[in-house]
């Protein structure tokens, strides 16, 4: 990133303002189209219940944050949305995960097809050990989106606000990019196959503050075209980027711990007047 410190401060102020505005407008317009509907979702790993009794709706073109203490099943929840948990031994899901009113865990649904529409960005930037261009072009080429591939790559990189920084070195290894650039490359890679939803699993946890600011700014820009769900351990980040926030916590019963959804509301409500004491305690930093 080439942002100098004063600009950065201004940038942050602006994005903080944006949060307020964005949060308000989301509430005002009340983006009502439901992308995901979770009905009584329980996730087990073997015998152990990881997350239980989840009911929530995720709305179109809204940034939804999932926050909560470690081990409360935030990432598990996120990964059920694109069936990335399938490969984990002992994974079992009951209840319904409806994506545009279709249950994605039905027997005749191909998880590959699900992931094709629902992009994901991981904790640690994970560019492939290929050139910058190939990182983006690889998936579209395989998926048969070969027409105007160069234009597609450029659009994806522009979409991820990375084009100007890398346009002169597309042939170079992606591993030479900085952490923040790598993470935006991973977002670009996801955008290149034109997903409907973008899932972000603590996308900034391995990034420095400046790179974090660049990714958060990008999320704001992507809000127009994509539905985004972000897991974050950083409450300030949720407050900055999310329109709606879900607070997960740990439920200890008979010595076994499982994640529960405590409260789910607009980010403003969660952070200023939470309805549940546990949320209030967490937000105030009294535990977790």
């Amino acid at each position: 990133m080439s942002l100098s410190p004063p600009e950065k401060t201004a940038e942050q102020e602006r994005s903080l303002l944006n949060v307020e505005v964005a949060g308000e407008s989301a509430v005002a317009t009340g983006s009502t189209e439901v992308v995901y509907e979770l009905r009584g979702v329980d996730v087990h790993y073997g015998q152990a219940l990881a997350v239980g009794g989840i009911n929530m709706r995720i709305h179109k073109n809204v940034i939804t944050a999932i926050i909560g203490p470690s081990g409360c099943g935030k990432s598990t929840m996120l990964r059920t949305l694109n069936r990335m948990n399938d490969a984990i031994p002992g994974f079992r899901l009951s209840g319904e995960v409806l994506y545009h009113d279709r249950s994605i865990y039905e027997r005749n649904i191909d998880p590959v097809e699900v992931r094709r529409r629902i992009g994901m960005v991981f904790q640690r930037p994970n560019p492939f050990p290929k050139s910058i261009y190939e990182n983006i072009a690889w998936a579209p080429r395989i998926l048969g989106l070969r027409a105007d591939l160069e234009e597609r790559v450029e659009n994806a990189l522009r979409g991820a606000a990375l084009w100007d920084e890398v346009k002169d070195r597309l042939k170079q290894s992606a591993l030479g990019l900085s952490g923040g650039q790598q993470q935006r490359l991973c977002i670009a890679r996801a955008l290149a196959i034109e997903p409907d939803v973008l899932l972000l699993d603590e996308p900034c946890s391995a990034l420095d503050p400046i790179a974090t600011a660049s990714v958060e700014e990008l999320m704001h820009e992507l809000r127009r075209d994509y539905t985004q769900v972000i897991v974050t351990h950083n409450m300030q980040q949720a407050a900055r980027v999310a329109d709606r926030t879900a607070f997960f916590s740990l439920n200890v019963e008979n010595g076994s711990r499982s994640g529960v959804l405590v409260e789910y509301d607009t980010t403003k409500t969660i952070f200023t007047s939470p309805g549940d004491q546990r949320t209030a305690d967490y937000i105030a930093g009294r535990f977790g």
């Binding site: 990335m84 998936a139 996801a190």
Partner: peptide, 15 residues
């Protein structure tokens, strides 16, 4: 080969 990379490919809708 890091699991991160394999997950990254699968998350792009690769078989």
């Amino acid at each position: 080969v890091p699991q991160d990379l394999k997950d990254g490919a699968l998350a792009l809708g690769m078989t």
